[in-house]
């Protein structure tokens, strides 16, 4: 991919109506009012996506592979003093949890830096990773503002002791040493759903709810909503609309009461994941 072609794509992406002609753009909404930080999603993702456990030593070197993590903070961001606690020794308003995985940015900073175009944007709005093209330069990981790309420093799958290899999901590959990987929005499920629709002769439309990501399916409190943002009837587009988040903006103008935001919106990376404000009863 030549530089000129990349730049051409980049400017095309920044056009306001770029998304107009594609029938599907997968998007997500995560309600931090409901997320309890229980990490059911993390384990569900591990099971669905053939993610290995790497052991204590490698975790200590920062080689953890889980595509999803629960970020946990003990303080409020600036500008919310009334939601922090009056002077106290303890975090009396509890923790702040944010499930964090690839935000499937539409202006993804990881994409233009890949020297071999192993990471690219697919027509469904996914930031896709082509494993057999990846040469492991790790530029993409460096450039990711969310730190959600994970590099295979070893051939973890080779070491799975028998019979544990039997739990591997045959719908997606196991990754080998030297390859970068990350959340795919469970692309194997999306492809199956599209395939099923195609069998029925329907193209470019997947019924809302016909496909769930593994994290969404497992979430006990239904904090995660996933679907097609281009489908005006889908739950996720309702959520985006009613919480005042629009694509193609680097600053959202939430009307009063709209809780939606995207993490690091100011970077203008156009994430496909919207978060909804955490809620605390300040009278308690």
């Amino acid at each position: 991919m030549s530089l000129s072609r990349m730049l051409e794509n980049w400017s095309r992406l920044n056009q306001k109506d770029y998304y107009k002609d594609e029938p599907i753009m997968w998007g997500m909404s995560i309600d931090l009012n409901k997320c309890t930080g229980c990490a059911s999603c993390v384990t569900a993702c591990n099971a669905e996506n053939n993610i290995p456990a790497v052991g204590k030593e490698k975790c200590g070197s920062g080689h953890t592979m889980s595509w999803m993590r629960i970020e946990r903070y003990w303080d409020s961001p600036e500008g919310e003093p009334d939601l922090a606690v009056e002077e106290s020794e303890y975090p009396e308003r509890g923790a702040h949890f944010a499930p964090m995985m690839c935000q499937q940015c539409n202006h993804a900073p990881c994409e233009p830096v890949c020297p071999v175009a192993a990471t690219y944007h697919n027509p469904d709005g996914l930031n896709a990773q082509v494993y057999n093209r990846c040469i492991g330069s790790r530029y993409c990981g460096t450039n990711c503002p969310f730190k959600v790309r994970y590099f295979n420093f070893f051939d973890y799958q080779e070491d799975i002791p028998h019979p544990m290899e039997m739990l591997l999901n045959p719908d997606l590959t196991v990754r080998s040493k030297g390859v970068m990987e990350k959340c795919t929005f469970c692309v194997q499920r999306l492809r199956n759903a599209k395939g099923d629709q195609a069998d029925k002769g329907i193209r470019g439309h997947v019924e809302d709810g016909a496909v769930q990501t593994a994290c969404q399916q497992s979430c006990p409190t239904d904090a995660i909503v996933f679907g097609n943002l281009k489908d005006g009837e889908s739950k996720v587009s309702h959520a985006w609309e009613s919480h005042g988040v629009e694509l193609n903006r680097h600053e959202q103008f939430n009307a009063e009461g709209e809780r939606g935001y995207r993490v690091f919106e100011e970077l203008n990376v156009e994430p496909s994941v919207m978060y909804l404000d955490r809620v605390r009863d300040t009278n308690a």
Binding site: L32, N33, C59, G60, S61, G62, H63, T64, R69, E71, Y73, W74, D75, S76, P77, E78, E80, D82, L83, H96, F97, A98, K147, G257, R259, Y261, V263, F264, Y275, D277, R278, V279, R280, D281, T282, N283
Partner: peptide, 29 residues
């Protein structure tokens, strides 16, 4: 979880003012 990742390790306790998890009051909600 943050081990070995300087970015995460330094931020493991505090959002340092960044709006990663924002909050609103239940009254408004």
């Amino acid at each position: 979880r943050a081990h070995g990742d300087l970015v995460l390790a330094s931020e493991a306790m505090s959002q340092k003012g960044r709006e990663i998890v924002k909050s609103v009051s239940a009254e408004d909600f």
